[in-house]
Computed example of a mutant assay.
Amino acid sequence: MNISKTFLVATTMVTLLASTASGADKLVVAIYKSGTQQYFLDQAAGFTKAAEELGYKAQIINVELDANLAISAVSDAIAAGAKGIGLTAPDQAMGAAAAAAAAKAGIPLIATDDPLKDSDGKPVPFAGFDGVAMGTKVGERAGDLLKQSGWLGGTKYGILSINLDTLSVCNDRTDAAKAQLLAAGSTEANVIPVSYDGTTDVALSASGPVITANPDVAKWVVVSCNDEGVLGGVNALKNAGFSASDVIAVGLGAYEACRPWKEGIETGFKAALYISGTDVGDAAARALIKSIETGEPLPEKTVANTTIVDPTSYANIMPCK
């Protein structure tokens, strides 16, 4: 994290403590990793809107990819009098500490997007998506496009599988996508793994050397844990001289994929799985506040729906910012 982002997070925490003295009894806090990504901006908006509709004040904290800041944010939220916390953790290993802090304070904690476990290994209540189902839909569409392309008939192609290996939900997504591509007729030899940190820049820089190291590959399929990963792979292929027709990229999120579609720009993005961060934020806030108001435990799992979109269908299904 750079200095400006650290300052922004620290300032947000100070503001949280200073601004809630008169309304702490109606405060819920959402803490997000990578909070400047569009998906998490949408989720924060959904969380805030739902909380306000239910008469609560929402505070959003972005901790980027810093687990230490996330732990501090949990402590600061509790100190500010938060009655419930939503957390998309930068590191799933912090689940036990966050769950223990919330339990000690006697407030509900809901994990968003990335599942967490407490110190006993029990799942923290969760709101988000089913990673295996998401990856399966991505892989099914990528597999269909691969079969339609004719590349299975002898063209030398590769599959960039861009993954955040340390995050279980990412492994769920890319493993499921790969399984569907294999079912479509591909082979393990075609799958070329790329490791990244969830951001476009690192996906781009990590993919470049892999592409260069495989000069005999004429066509590429790209799948990843999120739209940022796919975008990084697509940009790396463009930089290496591959045209949009040489690439079958299926995004996961659709918020990056839809931008070239909206502008009518040729792109390797042929489809994407639309996931609504707004819906997850809304569900998390409503679940938290229901638990606060009734004293009932949070549901173990709240799963949101997903939809495959492409350049011909996205405008009828999703906003594109």
Rank of each mutant, 00 (worst) to 15 (best):
Q180C: 00
P209G: 12
L273F: 06
G295R: 07
E293W: 07
A249S: 09
G95P: 11
V28M: 03
A67K: 15
G143E: 02
E256Q: 11
A45F: 11
A176G: 13
G277Q: 02
P215M: 11
R259A: 08
S205Y: 05
A285E: 08
G95C: 06
P209R: 12
L152S: 09
S4W: 05
S276D: 15
S4I: 01
F269L: 08
L164S: 05
D66F: 13
D282H: 14
A99I: 14
S291A: 14
A99K: 04
E228F: 08
S22M: 09
A18M: 02
V230D: 09
S224Y: 06
A100M: 02
K178Y: 01
K57W: 00
A93T: 15
S168L: 04
V194S: 10
S75G: 10
T306D: 09
K156E: 13
Y157K: 07
A70L: 11
K26W: 10
D172I: 01
L54V: 06
L160R: 07
I248M: 07
A184C: 08
I275Q: 14
S75R: 09
A142G: 10
Q92S: 14
M1Q: 13
K156R: 13
R173L: 05
I85Y: 03
V210C: 04
L145G: 01
Q148N: 11
G253M: 03
M13T: 02
G277D: 00
R173Y: 04
Q37G: 00
Y196A: 11
E256H: 04
A304R: 10
D165R: 05
V194I: 15
A283R: 00
Y255G: 00
P209E: 10
D279T: 01
L69A: 15
V202R: 06
N226V: 06
V14K: 00
A73N: 06
A21I: 03
T307W: 05
A283E: 04
G185R: 04
A77M: 12
I289M: 07
I107F: 05
T15H: 07
M94T: 07
T48P: 07
G143Q: 03
Q59G: 01
S186W: 04
K290W: 02
P123L: 01
S119W: 00
G251F: 00
I85D: 03
G233H: 01
I317G: 13
D130V: 12
S19C: 09
V63G: 13
A100S: 14
T306H: 06
E300G: 08
G35E: 05
P297Q: 08
G232Q: 06
G128S: 05
